[in-house]
């Protein structure tokens, strides 16, 4: 299924992407699975999702945990803990 993935702040700079369309394999249906799948892209991606730094996720503008389910055409975002205000 196809989804849109967005990256923000230091994560955007690390992976050098702000947004991309990806076509996920059938078995990738959760945030955890998506992180593991993206981690296969190389060292930068593997380091990002190795669990040593907090990476927050949102699906369609709502904060979710790693067990959340992804559906076709969803907008998934990855970003560091927020620092506004």
């Amino acid at each position: 299924m196809k989804i849109k993935v967005l990256y923000f702040a230091r994560i955007k700079e690390a992976v050098n992407y702000s947004t991309e369309e990806v076509d996920l394999p059938n078995q990738v249906t959760t945030i955890t699975a998506l992180k593991n799948w993206l981690a296969l892209r190389g060292e930068v991606w593997a380091n990002l999702f190795d669990g040593k730094q907090l990476v927050r996720a949102a699906i369609n503008h709502t904060l979710v945990d790693d067990l959340a389910t992804i559906q076709a055409n969803d907008e998934v975002a990855f970003f560091p803990p927020v620092t506004g205000g």
Partner: peptide, 23 residues
């Protein structure tokens, strides 16, 4: 809640260059 839930990120510029602010 704005501080912990709203998706804003701060980057500061110092004499040593730029750095992202940690939560």
């Amino acid at each position: 809640f704005l501080k912990t839930q709203a998706p804003f990120w701060k980057k500061e510029t110092t004499a040593h260059g730029e750095r992202w602010v940690d939560a």
